[in-house]
Design a protein around this nucleic acid. Structure first.
Lengths: 227, 227
DNA sequence: TAAATAGTGTCTGTTAGACAGTATACG
DNA sequence: CGTATACTGTCTAACAGACACTATTTA
């Protein structure tokens, strides 16, 4: 809070969201074609100014951006970091509160001309410092996947342990030990088995379906020693 | 970034700093007596508006606040989180980019009437949402101390391993195993021994002095598996 | 030489990964 | 019954903590 009453050059405050999903074993980010200047017509992160008259806080602004501009609801949302400076936006000194959002691929909105879902390994050039923001999101998601239940937010309502392990492996970019993974999931007690097993007609033993325990639905669960 | 050009109610952006130091085995926070309304005369976190005409980014604003309002320089600075909403400041919808700063006690400024250094376990009532910000800083410092070299920023230029272990223990609030701690410090290779040993006239074997390796002076070093 | 803390060697229990086995579906 | 994947039992290697021992200073 300020200790003086002097007024200074205005600072623009916006919210930017890195919306990630997992498609065909690869993390993808959702980009929006910018409607207005600057960078009109360019693919960029979904974002927008804070609406002081309707947003309860910046997280609510991010949720509103996802709802009104991307058309999704219920994504896992977590504040990432705040980016600032005179050069990141050509309009002048600006502040962007960046959020990271995770969504199962099946909850993505239907195809739209102004929405692009691209692998994070093949992003186009992004305006502002959006590339830095995406990089920060990827670093955060990868590091948190080492010791938390964060990746469950990329799975649907129910999933099998082999599926969940694959999600972890896709995010981390390295194979995990099956026995250790299942032992951890068991110890952490984040999941509960659903009555019916998944058969899916595959020519092998069906896998048990699990869902996240209600207590961890919105919150993250942490593991003391990783994995 | 915004996708529209509409303009809305203004949002105030400030920077708040949780400056922590270790005094007599206890974490202390530095509070400043507010000079201006709101909450004039009340102890609060050092903070201030961003000066768009001189600050390179919000971190520079935080460093400037520490320099001009608290009188310190060279503290370890790390962005914490951004707090926002219509209710946190009586002047209206506001955004506070919070930073956490660590400083060895010997680098604190000389006593001043408008500066108070209080144990974090005995903080007074704080205005705005400064209590939430302090709590976030403590949670961050404690969790990062589990797997990084962050506590070295609370030590002076040189220190002994028993001293450093005590800093970790004071932050974490629990005793650490001496053998394991020294084994980790050795494996991580963050420190280097200084030529002379510290005797300090104590009636026992003197301890080797260490300093942080130059590569980790400003950056943090992480440990893959904790401690 | 007694007291006090620094620093080290080694044992043991815990945890993580490798491997191989059993279970259960489909064709 | 062959194949493919789910799941489990068990061995082994790596790691962390406990304990005890040696080292070096002052009084």
């Amino acid at each position: 809070m300020n200790q003086t009453t002097e007024s200074r050059e205005t600072v623009q405050v916006s919210v930017d969201v890195v919306l990630l999903t997992l498609i065909e074993q690869q993390l993808h980010a959702v980009l929006l074609k910018r409607a207005a200047a600057p960078f009109a017509g360019v693919w960029a992160l979904p974002g927008g100014y804070i609406h002081a008259d309707e947003d309860a806080d910046a997280k609510a602004s991010a949720a509103r951006v996802l709802r009104t501009k991307v058309g999704i609801e219920g994504a896992y949302l977590e504040q990432l970091a705040t980016f600032s400076g005179p050069a990141r936006d050509p309009r002048g000194w600006s502040v962007a509160i960046a959020y990271c959002a995770l969504l199962p691929v099946q909850n993505l909105p239907p195809d739209r001309a102004d929405i692009s879902v691209v692998p994070v390994s093949a992003l186009p050039q992004l305006p502002f410092d959006h590339r830095d923001i995406v990089d920060a999101a990827l670093a955060r998601v990868r590091s948190k996947s080492l010791y938390s239940s964060l990746p469950v937010h990329l799975c649907g309502e129910t999933f099998t342990l082999p599926q969940l392990q694959q999600v972890y492996e896709n995010i981390l970019g390295e194979p995990l030990n099956k026995v250790s993974f299942r032992r951890k999931m068991d110890e952490m007690d984040w999941l509960e088995a659903v009555a019916g097993a998944m058969q899916s007609g595959a020519a092998h033993r069906p896998a048990q379906l699990y869902c996240v325990k209600p207590a961890f639905r919105q919150e993250l669960a942490l593991s003391p020693r990783g994995l």
